[in-house]
Amino acid sequence: MQKITQEVMSRIEASQGSDVVSAMQKIAMQVLKDGVSCDEDFERLVGAFDAQRRTLELMRLLAGATAGVGQDKVDALKVAVDFTQETLDMGVSHVLQVIAERSIASESLRLDLDSLVKVVSDSFDGNVTFGNLNYDSLLLASLTSGFGPKLADMASGYEKTVVTINGISETFPSLRKSGDFPSDRRILLLQLHGCICFWRDRRQGVTAKLSTDIVRDPEIWDAVRSGDTNIRPMVVLSSRHDKAQQVLEQPFNIAYEKFRESISTSNAWIVIGYSFRDAPVNELLRSEFLKRSNKPSVLISTYGTDLARVAVEQAFGWGAEDGSSDSWLTISRDGASGLEKSVEWEIFMGK
């Protein structure tokens, strides 16, 4: 995240100047808690502008409904909303373009990911659901390669959408408008916070899953930043407070509802590379965990010692009065690569 953030800030500075970067940082700091920095976190830097946009839009609606407020003030607020949206589009496009460029796995890394998802999927009977928070398409590529006809994701298999990109109209799979996931696909991928491939046509209101070849073409990102296209990427990239609102919108609400349904019936939860700082995800995990009298077995895969065991317990609503968590919680601290060959995996599978 730090490297992506630094690259994003460098690109904004190269195209807009250092004063713009400085102003964006100062605005972001206004919506952050004291002592929290946005210098190494693109979500905090860019997400602040979604919060500002939502506030300004409400102010515009307030002005329009308030007696005695002239149309000139309503129009001025509309200009401010539009400018904030343009700034948000610029930041989001730079973030996702960097991710698109850097999320092309080398052969060795792809083999590690392929091995992990195959073992995870083959180790359990019935359905296996992957809830992904990353914006890249690496997990999608690995699951598609390994499971093909057994896999379903957020794109509809039968509904298509025509999207115009740089004057050329093409047909792509539509994003699901309801939880109509096929019952014959045992592997499910839910991109809870969107993906570099998820796009919406603001004028027509349609959503689609574009190909990775298209989103790795710099021209589509240049068009977003210049305002020469009506399509925009669909990702949850907001302040922590506004994420809770954004995930209530389609298609994220559909992904969350299906994910909740999946974990409510699963006795084995594997959490890989998650910092436990997304409030909507934490709420979902905690609420489903606390409902269960017989707790699911949980395997946490992290790297290093930053994520303390007590922090994980608290995230699931497990307090000191509940005693030891050894019966349900296993933590691996060596990263995801080779997780399926680790001692912790064996312990988890034995619970």
Rank of each mutant, 00 (worst) to 15 (best):
R102H: 03
T302K: 15
A76V: 01
A63S: 07
D184T: 04
D136H: 02
L58I: 14
S262C: 09
F198A: 11
A308R: 14
I99Y: 06
V79D: 07
G194N: 09
D136F: 00
E321T: 15
Q204M: 11
F172N: 05
A100D: 02
R60T: 06
R54P: 01
S137P: 03
P233E: 01
N253M: 12
I104Y: 03
L339I: 08
L88K: 06
S10K: 06
L88S: 05
A23C: 05
L339C: 02
G304W: 01
N127C: 14
Y274C: 11
S10Q: 08
N166E: 12
L32Y: 09
P233W: 03
R292T: 13
I270P: 06
L192G: 05
G64N: 03
D34T: 15
A141C: 06
L210S: 01
D114H: 15
T305G: 13
P149I: 08
T66G: 13
F348S: 02
L307Q: 10
W318T: 07
S239C: 07
F172P: 10
I220C: 00
V119R: 07
W345E: 03
A336N: 12
Q85T: 12
T330E: 07
S115V: 09
S287I: 01
L192F: 05
F172D: 06
T229H: 01
G323K: 08
R232V: 06
V46N: 09
E101P: 00
V298T: 00
R176A: 04
M1D: 13
T55Y: 13
I272L: 10
R202Q: 05
T161F: 02
L299M: 13
S115R: 10
T305E: 14
A255R: 15
S169A: 14
G47C: 08
R277K: 13
V69P: 05
A65Q: 15
D112T: 12
Y256Q: 08
Q204W: 06
F289C: 02
F348C: 00
N166G: 13
T171M: 07
S332G: 15
D278I: 05
A155P: 04
K341L: 12
L210E: 02
L58M: 13
G17F: 01
S123L: 06
T171G: 07
L284D: 03
N253S: 14
E346I: 15
T161I: 03
T229V: 00
L192S: 11
L32W: 08
V310P: 04
R11G: 11
S297R: 13
D180H: 07
V98F: 01
D153V: 06
S145R: 03
S325K: 06
L62C: 10
S106L: 11
F259R: 12
W199L: 04
D201A: 07
S239A: 07
I214L: 12
G350D: 15
I165Y: 04
S156N: 04
G35I: 15
